[in-house]
Simulated assay, not measured.
Amino acid sequence: MTKLISLIDALNERIGRTVAWLALIMVLVQFIIVVQRYVFGIGSIWMQESIVYMHGFLFMLAAGYTLLHNGHVRVDVFYRQATPHRKALTDLCGTVFFLMPVCVAIIWLAWPYVSNSWAIFEGSKETSGIHGVFLLKSVIIVFAVLMILQGVSLAAHSVRILTGAETPPDPTSADTPPELF
Rank of each mutant, 00 (worst) to 15 (best):
T90P: 05
P84G: 06
S44H: 11
F59Q: 04
Y65H: 00
H69D: 05
G41I: 14
I45F: 04
S44E: 09
A82H: 13
I32W: 14
A62H: 05
V75K: 14
I106F: 13
I107N: 01
L92F: 15
H55W: 03
P84F: 06
N116P: 01
H85M: 11
V34D: 04
V73S: 11
Q30W: 02
A62L: 10
G41F: 11
T90K: 07
L92D: 03
D76I: 06
G64C: 07
S44Y: 08
V104D: 06
F78K: 10
W21L: 12
V27F: 00
M100G: 01
W21E: 08
I33A: 08
I32A: 15
G56Y: 11
Q81V: 09
T66P: 00
L92Y: 09
I42F: 15
D76E: 11
Y53I: 05
I106C: 12
T18D: 03
A110N: 08
T83I: 09
N70D: 12
A63S: 11
G41W: 14
L67A: 08
W108L: 04
S115E: 11
L99I: 10
G16D: 00
M60L: 15
C103F: 02
M100H: 01
V75T: 13
A88T: 09
W108K: 01
G56A: 14
T90D: 14
G56C: 07
I51N: 11
E49L: 02
I42T: 15
V34S: 14
H55T: 10
T95M: 08
E49C: 02
